[in-house]
Design a protein around this nucleic acid. Sequence first.
DNA 1: ACTCTGTCCCGTACGGCGTACGGTCCGCAG
DNA 2: CTGCGGACCGTACGCCGTACGGGACAGAGT
Lengths: 231, 231
Amino acid sequence: MAQAAIPASERRDRTRRAALTPDEIVAAAIVLADRDGLDELSMRRLAAELGVGAMTLYGQFRTKEDLLRAMADAVLVDAAPSPSPDAAWVDTARDVAVRLRATLLDHPGVAPLVARCGPIGPNALRATEAALAWLRGVGFDEHETPRVFQSLLTYVLGAVALEAPYLSSPALREQKADAMRLVYESLPASVFPNTMAMADHLFILDPEAQFTYGLELLLTGLQQRHTDVGS
Amino acid sequence: MAQAAIPASERRDRTRRAALTPDEIVAAAIVLADRDGLDELSMRRLAAELGVGAMTLYGQFRTKEDLLRAMADAVLVDAAPSPSPDAAWVDTARDVAVRLRATLLDHPGVAPLVARCGPIGPNALRATEAALAWLRGVGFDEHETPRVFQSLLTYVLGAVALEAPYLSSPALREQKADAMRLVYESLPASVFPNTMAMADHLFILDPEAQFTYGLELLLTGLQQRHTDVGS
DNA sequence: ACTCTGTCCCGTACGGCGTACGGTCCGCAG
DNA sequence: CTGCGGACCGTACGCCGTACGGGACAGAGT
């Protein structure tokens, strides 16, 4: 093969390149997943984006699954709560939930992976530990703390799961919008009066306000529970 | 080709079979997805399960995506709330949330699709309409109702998203369990004291109780909101 | 200077995927 | 008997994840 003819610009500097690091790969994978959607993320495409051959990636990740797990965890740097001593714990709770949601929605391609992979990566573990320590610190006991943590996490992940698809790729977003318009225009108003009346608030408008609403419900319940149990 | 030699038992009764219906296909797809996991659901395998060729399926569904949407919706028959007139509305709310979760966990292979596809199928729309009508009936106004509905849905879907992977296939369940055991055994207890202390309650034990706990938080908040706003 | 060795990198190939296309077979209407 | 319309599917194409084996190159040993 006429390999000598390949120009240096496409050869990605064939002189030893300090090895393609896992972090470079993960970063590129996240960019690709967020831009084109998770379905469009293939090992070949990712490798092409990095200017290497597909099999090169398998030097750093035994499997595509491994890479996906790494992506899910990479997104969770800075997910730990940042309690300020002079703020009410409810405000800290709200803040961490809002920040986590924002982080995940910044990475709509990666968001589905976070729920699927579970909190087994180093960043996820660090954030979990910090959250648990904080909850213990504000007066929840050993039994209550994991329940509270998990409840908040559940709500945030649910909200993201419902929102992220609309952001994850132009194609999917448009397809959803089409389907919804079609439904709302051809739906018999006599059978679905409430759906029609509240359609706008149901799915489209102001997901931020919707998220806040449910979060406040949760926090109200939490506050009550907190004072009931003691501390 | 020696087609005459194919026995009738494998030919699936070549005499006109009243056409393979979409519902048969969807039912078989759900069984397959729940048994082997969503990743194992391919058009070829599904067709083989039904005793037909792969391309036969495309007579009923333009695309695999269409089939997945149909599966997501099929699971939602009976998802509508069943309010009994002499029960408190909070109890009805709890009941519908618990039932939806149970339904989705009965179909761990299909559950991820429900969040991804949105409520655009006929069953989903029927259930949504019924839920909205019920909420209006118990005193939530036009602005509040979709918020409440969406908040409950968010929590249930989040909970299912966190639980379903553990049920969706033996392979994945075992892989997760392995990863978690490994983490919990090789984790430096000095850095992760809280995670270690509460590990059992965090992820493994009694997801049902965990779900109920967060649901009660949400219902407490809802109740307070309900009395604040009026009715 | 010349080999040796380890490390990175990747060309090739295999089996499986979704699905476009163009038949083939059948029961029935004329 | 002939023709038709619809259910069914064999084949093929371009992707996918990834096992395998080998090529290129830096530095160590002689």
